[in-house]
Simulated scan of single mutants.
Amino acid sequence: MNDTDQYCLLSNDIQLCYRVDGAAGEPLLLVGGLGWDLAAWPDALVSGLVQQGFRVVRFDNRDCGRSSTVDAPAPHTLRLMTGRLRDAPYDLGDMAADAVGLLNHLRIDRAHLVGMSMGGMIAQTVAARHPDRVTSLTSIFSTTGHPRVGQPALSTMLMLGRPPARTPEAALEREVALRRHIAARGFPFDAEDTRRSVAASLARVDDPDPRARVARQVAAIRVSGDRTAELRDVIAPTLVIHGADDRMVNPSGGTATLHAITGARLHVIRGMGHDFAAPVVPRIVDLVAEHAKAATVSARR
């Protein structure tokens, strides 16, 4: 796997950190979720897509990993939890523009987009607003922003609303506990592998207040509101993947995405939560690769 970070400065002065795996093939852009940096994508998923013939690009969203920290105060936790936000430093449209800016930097005209959770929302927005840049869309355990679908379980909300950890060690263990909580119910949870992955991601953050970064991303989701109407503009072939046991984004979010995007297909995986459990990764690779390759063939007709 490529562990060399590269950087590009966008026209909006946001600097993105990214990596590219695979020398040739159809470009495929992985868009990470809330606080999910580029190193958090499972190696098996990235290498599996490369083996399927794709040139895989992954990056840190703004306010994540080694990409730019936005100079703005963090919204209050209560306002984030209740959704009572009047404004925010940026929204999902701005994050979608970042993704397009990265494609421009890499001189990629069209790409397959694969987004998970918040990254699915970003990828959906790119597909709706920049249809000429998207060959196919895969939205994984994501939602439309409609307030009555895709909501976290109460137990998850309570975990997310806890006061900040006081030490790096406590922050690590708290994140591992959250990952365990939202993980697949039908597959074993590998605590040590998760701890290594979380530690690697935390080591890539050089920011005195990482929780503020996540809070601003949550605010971006909140102020973007219900995107159902905009999703009618998506014309790229769309695959929706969701875990039947997702405690972070209720499966109703996947169903709503299916109904919002014309011609979309939904694949629900039993036992899957809001994570990429090792036994599920090969299946996801196959689903994404089959969908993307079919879209490429269709686009060339």
Rank of each mutant, 00 (worst) to 15 (best):
Q6P: 07
C8P: 00
D13P: 00
Q15G: 13
Y18S: 01
D21S: 15
G22V: 08
A24G: 11
G25N: 15
P27I: 06
L30H: 10
G35R: 09
W36H: 14
A40M: 15
P42G: 08
A44C: 07
S47M: 05
L49T: 05
Q51Y: 08
R55P: 06
R55T: 01
V56M: 14
F59E: 03
N61I: 08
D63A: 07
S67L: 01
S68K: 11
A72I: 15
P75I: 04
H76R: 13
T77A: 12
L78C: 10
T82S: 10
R84Q: 12
L85K: 05
L85C: 01
Y90I: 00
D91E: 12
G93V: 08
D98H: 07
V100G: 10
L106F: 08
R110G: 01
A111P: 02
H112G: 02
L113M: 10
L113T: 10
V114L: 13
G119S: 06
G119D: 11
G120N: 10
G120D: 13
M121G: 09
A123M: 04
T125Q: 13
V126G: 00
A127M: 13
A127N: 03
A128G: 11
V134W: 11
V134Y: 07
S136Q: 11
L137C: 05
T138C: 05
S139Y: 06
I140L: 14
F141M: 15
S142N: 02
S142I: 05
R148M: 04
G150N: 02
P152E: 04
P152W: 02
T156P: 13
M159G: 00
P163H: 08
R166Y: 01
R166S: 00
R166E: 12
P168Y: 05
E173K: 00
R174H: 04
E175L: 04
E175F: 05
R180Y: 10
R185E: 12
G186Y: 15
P188R: 14
F189N: 12
A191P: 02
A191E: 15
E192Y: 04
E192R: 06
D193L: 07
T194V: 15
V198D: 10
A199W: 12
A200Y: 02
L202P: 00
L202T: 10
V205G: 05
V205N: 08
P208Q: 13
A212S: 14
R216A: 11
R222G: 00
V223G: 15
D226E: 14
R227T: 10
R227I: 05
E230G: 01
V234P: 03
I235R: 14
A236K: 04
P237Q: 02
P237D: 08
V240T: 03
D246M: 02
D246E: 09
M248P: 01
S252C: 05
A256Q: 07
A256P: 00
T257I: 15
L258F: 03
L258E: 05
H259S: 13
A260E: 01
I261A: 04
L266T: 09
H267A: 12
I269W: 08
R270L: 09
R270M: 04
M272R: 11
G273S: 06
G273W: 07
H274P: 03
I284K: 05
V285T: 14
V288N: 04
A289H: 06
K293C: 03
K293D: 05
A295Q: 04
R300L: 05
